[in-house]
Amino acid sequence: MAGSIAERVYHLKRSRWSVLAGVLPILSVYVALLVIPMLLLGQFSLYRKLTGEMGQVVLIREVSLANYAKFLASPFYFRILKDTLVMALTVTGLCVLLGYPVAFSLSRARRWKGILYLLVLAPFFVSVVIRTYGWMVILGHNGLVNWLLLASGLVTAPVPLIYNYTGILIGVTHIMLPYMVITLEAVLRKIDRSLIEAAQGLGANPWQAFSRVIFPLSLPGLVAGSLLVFALSVSIFTTPSLMGGGRIHLMSTIIYEETMGQVNWPSGAMLAWVLLVTTLAVLGLSQLAARRFEWRR
C-alpha cells in the first residue's frame, strides 16, 4: 500500500503526458490553419481596400467598421443573404418531399436493401463538381431535357434550365438529398413494426397507421435531416456557382467574387464573417431545437 499514492501520482502524470502527446500534434495543425486564419479574417474584415491610381490594390490597415456598415446599408448584400436563406429553405423543403417516401420505402425494404442503400449513397461519393457538370449536360441549351422537350413538341425553343435559379435548386437538391434520405431512414428503421400491426389490429387503415403512428415517430429524423440540409445548403459553393453562371449570387459565391475577382480581401473577409456567423447561428438554433424536441418527448 505504501507505493499506492506514488503509483497513482505516476499514473496521473503519465496519463497527462499521454493526452498531451496524443492531442498536441493535431491541435497545432488546428491552431495554425483554423484559429489563426479565423482571427486574421476578423482583423482583415476591419481593414479597407483602395484602388490606386495605376489600378493597383492598396490595403488600408486602419481599423474601422466601414465594411460592416457597407453590408448593413447595402440592399445588394442584403438581398444576397436573403436569397441564400430562401434557397436553403427551398432545397430543404424539396429534400423532405423527395426524400421521405424514398427513406420510408428503404426502411421497409427486405430484398435489395443493400443495393438500394448503395444507390442512394452512390452520388454522395461522386465529386460535387462532376455531378454539377452532369446536370449542366442534362439541363443545358443542347442538353438531354431540352432535346426531349423539343422532340416531343412541348416547346418550340430550348427552355433555360441552367444559369438561373431553377438550375441552382435542381443542382443543390441533388447534392443534399442523400443526406436527408440517410438521416430519415436511420430513424424510420428503428420504428417497431409491431406498433403498426397494433394500429391496424385496432382498425386503423394504412393511411391512419402512417399519419398517426409512423409519421409522429419519424419527426426527430425529419428535424435532424432538415437542419443538416439547411446548414449545408447555406454555405454550398461549387454547385450554385456553376449552375448560377455568375448571374445569381449567393453568400458563398459573392465571397469568392469579392476576394478573387475584385481582389477586395477586406470585403471578402467581412462577408465570410457574416456567413460564418449565419451558419453557426443556424447550427446553434438547430441544437436548441433538437434539445427542446427531446425534452418534449
Binding site: 488546428y30 483554423l34 486564419p37 479574417l41 446548414a231 447555406v234 454555405s235 451558419t279
Partner: peptide, 24 residues
C-alpha cells in the same frame, strides 16, 4: 469541448476556411 473542436472544420463553410487560409 476538445472532441467538438476537432470536429468543427466540418461545420465551417469551405469558402470561409478558404479565404482565411489564403490570408494566413
Amino acid at each position: 469541448a476538445l472532441s467538438a473542436f476537432l470536429l468543427s472544420p466540418l461545420l465551417i463553410p469551405g469558402v470561409v476556411l478558404g479565404i482565411g487560409i489564403l490570408i494566413f
